[in-house]
């Protein structure tokens, strides 16, 4: 049975997600249509996510996987649906941040959310967790959305550093501030202040470290810190306890602000 590409694309477009994924392994023709950047977008564009799907762990993997094939879908279909479900705290807490964190970096830049829409989507929510992208650091853009959502909380035992990022001036401002941080200071209540004087982009460095932490590779963390930051062994041990936590920032002196805490 030899079908032209047009009807075959239409057939594949009608398939549910699971069958589309399976169909990639049928033959080269099926795979090419499903994986081709142009044709593939059309095919995957018909994917619909129903509410129960968002409860499944596979949805988290799906989003990143799908984004690599058809980035525009995220903006056109997923985002509005997720926004519709803002009231579902469980989804907000467990799915959206992880989905966001899994987005391919290039795909993240497909998004063009204004500050207002970002707030509408992420604002006023319960604490949520953000995991770094499995294959690399979060992009500044996504981190800025994360900042709009909550605050970045790197826990260093009794040591902490707080950076306030004003949200009311919008995501671009947050982004700018995140990408231009210099001379971060970590205050250790037991040992006194420790200074991180970094020549590299500190934001990306933080994300790199966060990624290593979440992947559970203490040896790599130590190596990264020793080679890139020259931290003391004591600081390294403290850092191994680190974790990332995103929390909603409460009203602060009459205006909403986002704090990034190292504590």
């Amino acid at each position: 049975m030899d079908l032209p590409d047009g009807p075959l694309t239409s057939i594949l477009r009608h398939l549910p997600l699971e069958s589309k994924i399976q169909a990639q392994a049928v033959c080269k023709t099926f795979r090419d249509i499903l994986c081709n950047p142009s044709g593939g977008s059309g095919v995957w564009g018909s994917v619909r996510l129903e509410d129960p799907v968002f409860d499944a762990a596979s949805t988290i993997a799906l989003a990143g996987w799908l984004m690599q094939r058809a980035p525009g879908i995220w903006l056109l279909q997923y985002m509005p649906r997720m926004a519709d479900m803002q009231r579902k705290q469980e989804i907000l807490r467990n799915v959206i941040p992880k989905v966001a964190a899994r987005l391919a970096p290039e795909a993240a830049f497909e998004l063009d959310l204004t500050s207002a829409s970002a707030e509408a989507l992420f604002g006023n929510q319960e604490p949520a967790w953000l995991m770094p992208h499995r294959d690399g650091p979060l992009t500044p853009y996504w981190a800025s959305l994360a900042g709009a959502l909550t605050r970045l909380d790197l826990r260093f035992d009794q040591s902490f550093l707080t950076l306030d990022l004003p949200l009311d001036r919008g995501v671009p401002v947050v982004l700018e501030q995140l990408t231009n941080l210099r001379g971060l200071t970590m205050r250790d209540t037991k040992r006194g202040p420790m200074h991180l004087d970094r020549s590299l982009d500190p934001f990306l460095d933080m994300q790199h470290l966060a990624g290593l932490m979440f992947m559970g590779k203490p040896a790599k963390i130590k190596h990264a810190l020793q080679t890139r930051y020259e931290w003391t062994p004591e600081a390294l041990e403290i850092l191994l306890l680190a974790r990332i936590r995103l929390q909603e920032e409460a009203q602060m002196q009459g205006s909403r602000r986002t704090s990034m805490l190292w504590c």
């Binding site: 594949l12 009608h14 398939l15 549910p16 069958s19 399976q22 169909a23 392994a25």
Partner: peptide
């Protein structure tokens, strides 16, 4: 027709 044909694929292994 393509919708009907998709039914022939749905749920099947490669």
């Amino acid at each position: 027709c393509t919708d009907a044909m998709a039914d022939h694929i749905r749920g099947k292994s490669p």
